[in-house]
């Protein structure tokens, strides 16, 4: 089957109660009776975005900006030069719902800010402006395969010699009435990738493969509200990378045969 190799140079993470990867890694695997996972802080700082710009953005864009800047810093990458690829299933769904509501008011013009903030590449636009980055960027969606397809796109960019690439996964909760009972908590994760070189730590060298879901590493437990996210595969991947041990992570756990990421694959 096809296989593509890359090295993970940096990571970023944000979820309510877990403002960075260190906080996320320090979580307990089980919660004692009567104790719930933390929920504060409920919004990321997103200091990559200037305050005037940040004020206009959604939780989704702030989460994406936050984890992108963490991963860029962690990997020592140039924020103005890296290629950023954003993956999200529903994108700016909260802003989209606001527009659907406004459409019911006859004759009322739609807010231009809300309109341009509803596109799938909203975070891509704001982050590129904030960092002065003139590289191409992309915003993808592939349902429950969004994390897998994001890595496929990034691995192909790395293979094409496009330099450093950052995959940013971010998902907001689905608002009612559209959600019809589907519930998950927001989170974002970022993976800074580049072409493998021989002096890399072997554990950060990954291989992307397509195949049957046997021989997979058991993922670390995650809070149920995050496990329900259609991008939950990113949680298993970031946990495995942070643990620093060889592993094989399912990127499409909903499929019997799907994309996987093998960590510690060597160059």
């Amino acid at each position: 089957m096809s296989a593509l190799a890359f090295t993970v140079r940096g990571l970023g993470f944000w979820a309510p109660g877990y403002p960075d990867l260190a906080a996320w890694r320090a979580r307990p695997d089980t919660w004692p009776e009567g104790q719930a996972p933390p929920t504060e802080p409920a919004a990321p700082k997103a200091e990559l975005l200037p305050p005037m710009m940040r004020r206009r953005t959604s939780l989704l864009t702030r989460m994406a900006a936050e984890v992108a800047s963490q991963a860029l810093r962690d990997g020592g990458l140039d924020p103005a030069a890296a290629t950023l690829v954003y993956g999200s299933v529903y994108g700016e769904i909260r802003t989209t719902l606001d527009l659907l509501a406004a459409l019911l008011v006859a004759g009322e013009p739609l807010s231009p800010t809300k309109f341009h903030n509803s596109v799938h590449n909203t975070a891509a636009g704001y982050v590129s402006i904030a960092t002065g980055n003139r590289a191409g960027n992309a915003a993808l969606s592939a349902g429950r395969s969004t994390v897998a397809m994001g890595l496929v796109e990034c691995a192909a960019l790395v293979a094409a010699g496009e330099g450093d690439v950052v995959l940013v996964i971010a998902e907001e909760p689905l608002p009612e009435p559209l959600a019809a009972g589907r519930r998950w908590d927001p989170f974002a994760a970022a993976f800074a990738l580049s072409a493998p070189v021989s002096c890399d730590m072997p554990i950060r060298t990954c291989r992307l493969e397509h195949g049957p879901g046997d021989m997979l590493t058991e993922p670390r437990p995650v809070p149920a509200a995050l496990a329900a996210s259609p991008c939950a595969a990113a949680l298993a991947l970031i946990d495995a990378l942070a643990a620093g041990a060889p592993a094989r992570v399912a990127l499409e756990p909903h499929l019997a045969v799907g994309w996987q990421c093998t960590l510690g694959a060597g160059a």
Binding site: G91, V119, H120, N121, A124, N137, A138, A139, L140, S141, A142, S145, T146, M149, V152, E153
Partner: peptide, 9 residues
């Protein structure tokens, strides 16, 4: 094969 949507307006 791989299948995804690119959505950049």
């Amino acid at each position: 094969g791989p299948a995804y949507v690119v959505s950049t307006a």
